[in-house]
């Protein structure tokens, strides 16, 4: 017990110790902000991987570490799409994942946001055109927010989520 306390005291608070990201090039539209209003600045996210290289997943996981600590902003990761306000989709949509993505989208209660995370989800990236890839996410379900990058840094994801959560009246 003493050892654990000593370790915690020695480490101190590390939250926020990361390089800061620039303002995203594209701020979310008025319609997206209005759609996010009922969530009252708190977002519950379900992450869906439809064929990414798993770097985007690692960065999503990094958001939960003590340095980014996304929970302090009221952003949670839900275990089921039925509990989610927003879907974060990564990767180009593969032939085999197409149906699963549509199912998940159907299972998520309205109102819902769809966030395409990473270049692959936005435009298929290096996998563009392959026989096994059916196209970017917005070919299958409507996308509200796009976070570009290969993969986007956690600080950039944080910034983009902050933009969505900010009430429309603050702008």
């Amino acid at each position: 017990m003493f050892r654990i306390l000593k370790k915690s005291l020695k480490t101190g608070i590390v939250t926020g110790q990361h390089p800061h990201a620039d303002q995203p090039a594209e701020s979310p539209s008025q319609a997206v902000c209005e759609k996010a209003m009922p969530f009252r600045q708190s977002l519950t996210i379900r992450e869906v991987d439809t064929g990414s290289c798993n770097a985007c997943e690692m960065e999503m996981n990094a958001l939960a570490n003590p340095i980014y600590d996304i929970e302090r902003f009221g952003v949670h990761i839900a275990a089921s799409p039925r509990h989610a306000d927003a879907l974060v989709v990564t990767g180009p949509v593969t032939v085999n994942m197409e149906r699963a993505l549509k199912d998940v989208h159907k299972q998520t209660p309205d109102p819902k946001l769809v966030i395409a995370l990473g270049d692959c989800a936005i435009n298929c990236g290096v996998f563009k055109g392959s026989y096994a890839v059916t196209g970017p996410v917005d070919r299958h379900i409507p996308v509200d927010v796009r976070i570009p990058g290969c993969p986007p840094r956690p600080a950039e994801i944080l910034k983009a989520l902050e933009e969505i959560r900010r009430p429309a009246s603050w702008k």
């Binding site: 991987d49 064929g51 593969t94 085999n96 994942m97 290096v126 996998f127 392959s130 026989y131 890839v133």
Partner: peptide, 21 residues
Amino acid sequence: FWKHRGIEKLFEQQTLSTAIA
């Protein structure tokens, strides 16, 4: 194999020097 993206076929569309990405 849910994530099968056809990588080995995509390699065949590349040249030796461009396939690193």
